[in-house]
Design a binder for these strands. Structure first.
Length: 488
RNA sequence: CGGGGCGUAGCGCAGCCCGGUAGCGCACCUGCUUUGGGAGCAGGGGGUCCCAGGUUCGAAUCCUGGUGCCCCGACCA
């Protein structure tokens, strides 16, 4: 093996970075905390984006675009919001450069200082609600169901490709409603959309839940989330949906005239998922040989490798297979590169996560078959050429399902119920995963637990059963269990 | 911003202690032989040794000051 990936057992973080680089997903950039998303990584994002965009539209949403820059004064209008984001904002202070009179290249022109500084958006609630004020007069203008695909910047102290970068790509939905109930229903609906996307497309099982006040989005009355579990036992917040109450409507004076001819503040939601999902995808399925992609998101689902090298009769057979697969909507490519040998290509496609590989040589043609290798289990089988299209169509479905089942089995095995502090610490330190335990409901206790164990409350699962118990730390009475975990 | 480590070819590194022609592996280029699980041989190209100053006949190497990156903590989709 010429291009080794650090085994997970040796160094999980290094394994993750190796996958990102060796599967050609992203490169480091000259800018601290930012990354270059390479074509293969971006193709995965495009598939995610297209699937989500379709789901948003199917639930009545439309796309729009708001500016990258936000006037500084906007951010400060909602108290909790500014408190939450102020520490990680990039600020534009000048609008011009000039040649350094001392010959040191270009410098910021001190005469080109902005009257009001601009914030590079960390999220767009403020600029959008400032705009909604003009758009909303009456209940007839509601609801507004809007989404935007954009980049945002949060000046993080420590970054990791996809999981946490200073700039990232995401979508942010921003909706406006005439009633609290309707807004709450919207926030929950979008949570369901995210959960469905994670499980059906990413094959990543998620727990839908509610954040504690401490973990809530800055400016929200309620934050819903989907939480996934990575192979190293750490949790990943994969998406959030917020019921914003009337907080932003009040901050930006957005009122509407209701049917009773009374002025009322508008109710709001916002919801987002980001390129972080790619990090989750990697850490849910991949192995020590490289990336493993679920077929529904794989840029190429099937690759055909001529053996030992491209030849007219092999190409002819490969093209027939390709046509049959494309007719079924399967994304397939023929590798007609004649520089690298089959062994190299096999390893390469395993590295980049292509779900199915077909090996096609003279021997196969003579036998009227093709060698089918699946990435998830590494199993190979020989399939008759005239049946290969149906076989692969089923196989892709099976791989998708198998990846989900495997991830779900792992996740379910790593939800541990504990009732004592000693068990709690023991499970977090050794087994990892989610720990289901009683908590007295106070932020103080939540922070104390975080201080002692580094574990945070990931969520209170939706439809959580009520159950009398005592808090794991304080022994105070509790009415339900919550999910703790160490998290990304 | 605290604590640790590292800047030498596209990538990964050795050389530094003990100053004296800048090296190795991978990648790249050319040719031949290969080709059913990461090919072999031969030849070849590629460097402001992070920056600035100092010591010295001479600095990748020693000294001083910068600077960038990585890891560990506090913040986070």
């Amino acid at each position: 093996m010429a291009k080794e990936i650090t085994p997970r057992s040796e160094d999980y973080s290094q394994w993750y970075l190796d996958i990102v680089h060796k599967a050609r997903l992203a490169d480091n950039s000259p800018v601290r905390g930012c990354m270059v998303i390479k074509p293969h990584g971006f193709a995965i994002w495009e598939n995610m984006r297209d699937a989500l965009d379709g789901m948003f539209k199917a639930t009545g949403h439309v796309n729009a675009y708001f500016p990258l820059f936000i006037p500084k004064s906007f951010l400060s209008k909602e108290a909790a919001h500014v408190e939450g984001f102020a520490k990680e904002c990039a600020v534009v202070t000048h609008y011009r450069l000039k040649n350094d009179p001392n010959g040191g290249g270009v410098i910021v022109d001190p005469e080109a200082k902005l009257e009001e500084e601009l914030i590079v958006r960390p999220t767009s609630e403020t600029i959008i609600w400032n705009t909604y004020r003009d758009w909303i007069q009456s209940y007839r203008d509601l609801p507004i169901l809007l989404n935007q695909w954009a980049n945002v910047v949060r000046w993080e102290m420590r970054t990791r490709p996809f999981l946490r970068t200073a700039e990232f790509l995401w979508q942010e939905g921003h909706t406006a409603h005439a009633s609290a109930d309707e807004a709450m229903a919207e926030a929950k609906l979008m949570l369901d959309v995210y959960a469905q996307f994670a499980e059906e497309y990413m094959a990543m099982p998620v727990i839908k839940g509610i954040k504690t006040p401490n973990e809530r989005f800055a400016g929200a009355d309620e934050t819903f989330c989907i939480e996934a579990l990575m192979q190293d036992g750490k949790a990943l917040q994969a998406g959030t949906s917020h019921f914003l109450g009337q907080n932003f409507a009040k901050a930006f004076e957005v009122q509407f005239l209701n049917k009773e001819n009374q002025q009322e503040y508008v109710w709001a939601t916002s919801w987002g998922v980001s390129t972080r999902l790619i990090g989750g995808l990697i850490m849910t399925h991949s192995d020590d040989d490289g990336l493993v992609l679920p077929p529904r998101l794989a840029p190429t689902q099937v690759v055909i490798v001529p053996i030992p090298k491209p030849a007219p009769e092999l190409t002819e057979a490969a093209e027939k297979i390709t046509a049959a697969l494309r007719a079924k909507g399967i994304r397939v490519k023929i590798d007609n590169d004649d520089q690298n040998r089959p062994g190299f290509k096999f390893a390469e496609y395993e590295m980049i996560g292509t779900p199915v590989r077909l090996g096609l040589g003279a021997r196969d043609l003579a036998a009227g078959q093709v060698e089918v290798a699946r990435r998830d289990t590494k199993e190979k089988s020989n399939v008759a050429l005239d049946q290969v299209a149906d076989y692969i169509e089923n196989l892709l479905t099976e791989i998708q399902q198998n990846l989900f089942n495997k991830a779900k089995a792992y996740r379910d095995e790593h939800i541990t119920r504990v009732d004592t502090w000693d068990e709690f610490v023991e499970v977090l330190d050794n087994k990892g995963g989610f720990v289901s335990a009683h908590w007295d409901g106070s932020t103080e206790t939540e922070l104390a637990i975080k201080e002692k164990t580094k574990a945070t409350i990931r969520c209170i699962p939706v439809d959580n059963p009520l159950e009398d118990g005592v808090c794991i730390l304080t022994g105070k009475p509790s009415t339900q269990r919550v999910l703790f975990a160490k998290a990304y």
